[in-house]
Design a protein around this nucleic acid. Structure first.
Length: 681
DNA sequence: CGGCTACGG
């Protein structure tokens, strides 16, 4: 049994400030009032904090073309503002769009507002997300993912169907929201120039740091709404912790011993493995505690967890039993759990970084930002006052960066640049981003697109090629789109469509660690030395052969739900292929064609075996290794292309495909000839 | 030789 030699852990903490989410000193704040869920909808609507501000809000929003709205979740801004606008006749000539970063949010908000308007979903109020369009010609209030509005913009850059665009959760700064900022700003300006119906843009944020938003949208006024956040007592460690996992463990049991059992604990950690390991340790220790302590249920939470297990975080623990949730940052925004009294914040997160020199994204454990720390703390105060234990010192907190670096500055921009060009933006290199990505990142993305043949340079300008235009019509990363467009040349478009679809969803494979041997045995019959892509293809073919039989899926550790999504994606991609008059053919057993095609589409992600048995990425010459999840993990292929690099303990290549050196040279003779010392095998 | 933040089209 693991055991803790340290002194009582609470002694290691010192109290920090009491944290209120919203600054009470700001002028124009509204006072919160308790909601009552048993009251009728009309009354509930009037009890929302925002209701008191309705006349002033409407007065302002009627006149303004741009506004920034700050309001805590619970202020009612997302459900009420669109209704207020509609009821007041603002933007009646068109549709009011409300964008969300996540599908579930778009869907559930639309449901809620339809209920409040007492109408059937899809009539006056509707939603649009990928694979689901619940709108009609009557729809005036349209909830949608920001990615969906972006795709619509490709066909209609001026967004002429819309009179108002509400960009919600803007503080999250997803890539899609950030691109949309520029798209709506451009549309707004162009519509004015062309004397079209004006476009009103409302930016909504849950955090106070909105100067950037306001500045970017023509110094638009900022309106504040009070939410229903309760005070949270913050604690910091007295000393810096070298081992945050140990510190988390100690803190969990400290709280467990002292707090009433009905008080649930939410611990923020970085990843699946770490979470599962700590869960085991906690369960072990809990078993051996004195009876005075009471039992504990430990619930892991991360995106890769099967949905049925994810739901366990919402079940309340049996009476007298404490619930401890060990979660990734999924619980920061995507999953909201009630009853959390204590948050333990390790201060760490696994997140993407981008190296513009190599054009490669890297996933690494790193410190969170202050904004993230507040977001995490806030999860303890949703129904009542709470506590947040930060496993770092106050000084360490002070040294955190204030804001999370927007995703647009942390990712490969190839897809974004392609999309902007498809939107007809004239000078993408100097696009008006709210937070500009580095010039290197932009240049790297454009070079990437040039290599793929999606863009070319004409008179100093970067322009879209015919191929690039086709590529942009796929909801895919450019290299996947390119691979699909190449596939008829290798008579394997059916196979490539399947593979790209398989790679577009979260993994279709279950890997329960406890049943490792069984998993390996079941999977063996699909594995091939050709690599992970063909292995996935084999699994998909087998899946189709049994018509998606559930029992077969269970026996083979295949996630039937995600397989269903694969079929949806494939259907969507096939539709686009048909529109582009692409020949859909199968190569049958000739899977070498598929690998050839992948080599041509993915040559930028190639690696070469070195004499010492290690691998070097061909474009950057950085050392890389085969990820243990790959079917090629125990092999030593001379050349591979891979889907992505994952920098954890080492720089791992994930999803590998065996290729010939000749194919790579064929795909990009100049590129490899100029930059690399590819030795023919 | 050994392991997979979170979203989205």
């Amino acid at each position: 049994m693991p055991h803790d030699p340290d002194p009582p852990p609470a002694k290691k903490f010192k109290p920090g400030s009491v944290f209120f989410r919203i600054d009470k000193n700001k002028p124009g704040m509204l006072l919160p009032r308790k909601a009552n869920v048993t009251t009728p909808i009309e009354v509930q609507r009037k009890q929302l904090p925002i209701y008191q501000a309705k006349p002033q809000l409407l007065n302002q929003l009627r006149q303004l073309h741009n506004a920034v709205l700050i309001g805590e979740t619970g202020s009612g801004k997302t459900t009420q503002i669109p209704q207020y606008l509609y009821e007041a006749g603002i933007g009646r000539q068109g549709i009011i769009a409300i964008t969300q970063p996540r599908r579930v949010a778009a869907i559930s908000l639309a449901g809620r507002v339809a209920e409040e308007k007492r109408t059937q979903l899809g009539k006056l109020v509707g939603y649009t997300v990928r694979f689901e369009d619940v709108t009609s010609s009557e729809t005036k209030l349209k909830f949608m993912t920001d990615g969906m509005l972006l795709r619509e913009a490709i066909g209609d850059p001026l967004l002429l169907r819309y009179t108002v665009v509400v960009l919600d959760e803007a503080h999250e700064r997803t890539v899609h929201t950030d691109v949309l900022f520029g798209v709506v700003k451009t549309a707004q300006r162009r519509r004015k120039e062309l004397n079209k119906i004006p476009l009103k843009v409302i930016v909504m944020s849950a955090t106070m740091d909105v100067d950037l938003f306001s500045e970017y949208f023509n110094k638009s006024p900022v309106l504040y709404l009070e939410g229903r956040q309760h005070p949270i007592q913050i604690y910091y460690t007295k000393q810096s912790q070298s081992d945050y996992l140990q510190a988390a463990l100690v803190s969990i049991f400290q709280i467990h011993q002292e707090a009433p059992p009905s008080h649930d604990i939410l611990v923020f950690m970085t990843g699946q493995e770490e979470i599962e390991a700590l869960a085991r340790t906690c369960r072990d220790i809990a078993k051996h505690l004195p009876d005075s302590c009471g039992p504990m249920v430990v619930v892991p939470l991360y995106a890769a967890l099967p949905p049925a297990l994810q739901l366990r975080v919402f079940l309340s623990a049996p009476k007298g039993c404490r619930k401890v949730i060990l979660s990734t940052n999924i619980a920061e925004t995507s999953v909201t759990i009630s009853g959390i009294k204590y948050v333990i914040d390790t201060g760490m997160v696994k997140a993407k970084r981008f190296n513009p020199d190599s054009g490669l994204e890297v996933l690494a454990v790193q410190r969170i930002s202050k904004a993230q720390a507040w977001q995490r703390a806030g999860r303890a105060g949703r129904e009542d006052s709470g506590f947040c234990y930060r496993l770092y010192t106050e000084q360490e907190f002070d040294n955190l960066i204030p804001m999370t670096v927007p995703e647009i500055q942390r990712c490969n921009l190839a897809g974004v640049m392609l999309q902007l060009m498809a939107l007809g933006i004239p000078d993408v290199m100097n696009f008006d981003f709210m937070s500009k990505p580095s010039p290197e990142a932009v240049r790297s993305a454009v070079e990437h697109l040039e290599l793929l043949g999606a863009v070319e340079r004409k008179e100093g300008q970067v322009v879209l090629t015919a191929l690039g235009k086709k590529m942009a019509s796929f909801p895919l990363e450019p290299r996947y789109a390119k691979t699909i467009l190449l596939s008829p040349d290798y008579s394997c478009s059916e196979e490539v469509l399947s593979i790209v679809s398989l790679l577009s969803v979260d993994t279709v494979l279950f890997n329960p660690p406890a049943r490792r041997e069984e998993v390996l045995a079941a999977r063996k019959k699909f594995c091939t030395s050709e690599g992970d892509h063909i292995t996935l293809l084999n699994i998909y073919r087998a899946f189709k052969k049994v018509s998606g039989n559930k029992e077969w899926c269970r026996e083979n550790f295949v996630n039937s739900r995600n397989m269903g999504l694969v079929k949806d994606v494939q259907a969507q991609l096939r539709e686009i292929c048909l529109k582009l008059n692409l020949k859909l053919v199968s190569c049958g057993a000739e899977t070498g064609n598929v690998r050839r095609c992948l080599a041509h589409g993915m040559f930028v992600n190639a690696a070469e075996l070195q004499p010492d048995g290690s691998y070097l990425a061909l474009d950057t010459h950085q050392p890389v290794a085969i990820h243990p999840s790959s079917v090629l993990f125990h092999g030593k292929p001379a050349y591979v292309v891979f889907n992505e690099l994952l920098h954890t303990s080492r720089c791992y290549m994930r999803d590998l495909c065996l290729v010939d050196a000749d194919w790579l040279l064929d795909a990009a003779p100049d590129y490899f000839g100029r930059k690399l010392h590819l030795t023919k095998s």
